[in-house]
């Protein structure tokens, strides 16, 4: 059974802070946001500056390194640390923009389906069923083939494929909330239905949405990395972790570090979003723990 969930309050915030996984995930993502925002200030070098005399310098703790290049340089002599910091921008843009858009679309439809029921629910639920029967990989191949490569295609592909994740769960939660007494009371009081939905029900479904959003952002980061790995995301002038991994794959026998650092950044970021999501789930809603 779904219990009544109260909107996040001071006490909830304290519970999130006491959840070690949420804390680790949240702090790491804050750190990433800081890196992305202040990239031009904190990056020691221009991420695009090539110097073929300085190619494949190993990280500082290895023999033959150069202290000016903490994590070494890639096959074109570009500073890895600076590229890593700048690349966080693309990953976070995709995570937030695609995540939030998918969330808005899926949540709106889920709220409407769960609250209004009848033909609205039938229509939206069928749409979700049909959508989900189409394997995500096929859909993304087709979408990118149609839209061409680029950041906008990556974002559109993620939103078009993943809104169903939000819709299904939000619909179920809304349906459960709609059956609770406070909604009956609000109806009896003559509150407008839209107001009940967005002012009364939405805050109670919000914790679930937050958990899904965090997990979705992790997925978005991976999808962007995969598409930039195969060269279907932003142009190669812009540093991305996926693009750096692809470059690292090519010089893997001569310079393993070119692959290792972006891979580690991607791994930690995905893990952070996941841990944040799991931690939030534990802190916000014990009924969700499965």
């Amino acid at each position: 059974m779904v219990e009544t969930v109260h909107a996040p309050s001071q006490g909830t915030f304290g519970r999130i802070l006491r959840e070690p996984r949420a804390l680790f995930g949240g702090l790491f993502i804050l750190f990433l946001i800081f890196c992305a925002l202040s990239a031009p200030l904190i990056a020691p070098h221009d991420p695009l500056e090539q110097d073929l005399l300085l190619e494949k310098i190993p990280p500082v703790w290895q023999a033959g390194s150069d202290p000016a290049y903490l994590l070494g340089t890639d096959g074109l002599g570009r500073d890895l640390l600076s590229r890593l910091i700048h690349a966080a921008r693309i990953s976070l843009i995709v995570a937030f923009v695609a995540g939030i858009l998918a969330c808005l679309l899926g949540t709106t439809l889920g709220l409407l389906a769960g609250f209004y029921g009848r033909w609205v629910d039938t229509l939206i639920s069928r749409l979700v069923d049909i959508w989900m029967s189409f394997p995500p990989v096929l859909l993304s191949i087709l979408l990118v083939a149609v839209l061409g490569s680029g950041l906008h295609s990556v974002i559109v592909a993620i939103v078009v494929i993943d809104w169903t994740r939000f819709c299904r769960v939000v619909r179920t939660e809304t349906l459960a909330q709609t059956k609770l007494e406070y909604v009956d009371s609000a109806v009896t009081l003559g509150m407008p239905r839209m107001r009940i939905l967005f002012r009364e029900i939405l805050p109670n479904v919000f914790p679930v949405i937050l958990v899904l959003l965090s997990l979705e952002m992790g997925i978005a980061v991976i999808v962007e990395a995969i598409l930039s790995f195969v060269g279907l995301s932003v142009s190669t002038d812009t540093p991305t972790w996926g693009g750096m991994i692809a470059e690292g794959r090519q010089v893997i026998y001569q310079a393993w570090w070119v692959l290792v650092f972006p891979l580690a950044a991607l791994f930690l970021t995905v893990l952070a979003f996941n841990q944040l999501g799991d931690g939030l789930r534990n802190a916000l809603d014990p009924a969700l723990r499965r």
Partner: peptide, 19 residues
């Protein structure tokens, strides 16, 4: 469960293929 196949594949390439 948290780590997708994309990352596993690259970790394997690095560890069992190169290092």
């Amino acid at each position: 469960l948290a780590v997708p196949d994309f990352i596993w594949a690259l970790v394997f390439v690095l560890v069992l293929g190169v290092l």
